[in-house]
Write a protein that binds this DNA or RNA. Structure first.
Lengths: 149, 149
DNA sequence: TGATTCTCTACTAATCCGATATAGTATTGG
DNA sequence: CCAATACTATATCGGATTAGTAGAGAATCA
């Protein structure tokens, strides 16, 4: 399960992507529109800003605004920014690789092999899907799930 | 990241699958061979037993033994029995489906759409891979990762 | 200047995770 | 039969993480 944090981040990004360019949104509007807890959201927006996704202005007419083109925002990195590493095992992580303490031979580790393929597919999909695509698909008539668990 | 619990479970299953049929392993052997904390492992073995993967015998020459054919043990369900639902969102879970509280229209939810495809691929892979396959692959010469994160 | 809005750090309550403790039940060799 | 052995079951616990709050501070603009 992804964290609540990641969900809020995602919702905020969608809202900001929908706002007219040049016109940002204030945190108050974000909270009210999407029903997000304000102070928690503040933190999240700061990390999104630090990661270069959005920008902000202080003062009377301040607010947050999308900085990066939604067609260039990929779900994978966005998720990683707020939730940290995505990999199911440390030894499968590219951004936070760590050898398992007790692992004798990584290339013959059953656990690693068990998750390698599945995770590779998962990550690739997340890294190729853009925020723009997702928003486009959400606007269309209706959708069928591909599959669930 | 999968839990420590799941890792221990996995290791124990591999060890039990390797043991000769008819000859089980005692928990002490499992702990020593794989360096697992004993009391924690006991709990895990109980849930594996409850799920029908293994069987056990009490008393002096007791122990645990593989019950299910490793060719019929799929990684996905195995993971689910120890770690619970795998899905990144409750609304994408088949075994533990739950609607998100604030969701107006599930079929147009950006968050859901963003993870649908990736998760579908992940789950399908995990549900098609067997313990036997993984153990076979681990025995072969060397392996290249498909990809990491 | 002062109202407004973002920024930054610290804090907290609740939950989860990994692990241990303890008491009990079944089996079997002697 | 009994004592040692091994599994069963439940309660507990410390530490880490998560979700969220508090409050002081800094920028902006009328």
């Amino acid at each position: 399960m992804i964290s609540q944090r990641a969900r809020y981040a995602f919702k905020a990004m969608v809202a900001l992507a929908r706002a007219k360019p040049g016109e940002g949104l204030q945190i108050r509007q974000l909270c009210e529109q999407e029903k997000l807890p304000r102070k928690f959201l503040e933190q999240i927006l700061l990390t999104l800003k630090a990661a270069g996704y959005i920008t902000s202005r202080r003062g009377r007419d301040g607010g947050y605004e999308m900085l990066k083109d939604p067609e260039k925002i990929f779900i994978g990195p966005l998720l990683r920014t707020v939730d940290g590493p995505i990999a199911p095992l440390p030894c499968l992580s590219r951004t936070a690789y760590k050898r398992c303490d007790d692992c004798r031979d990584e290339s013959h580790c059953e656990l690693r092999i068990a998750f390698d393929k599945a995770y590779s597919l998962y990550l690739t999909a997340l890294e190729q899907t853009t925020l723009a695509e997702v928003m486009g698909a959400a606007g269309e008539p209706a959708r069928q799930l591909l599959l669930n668990d």
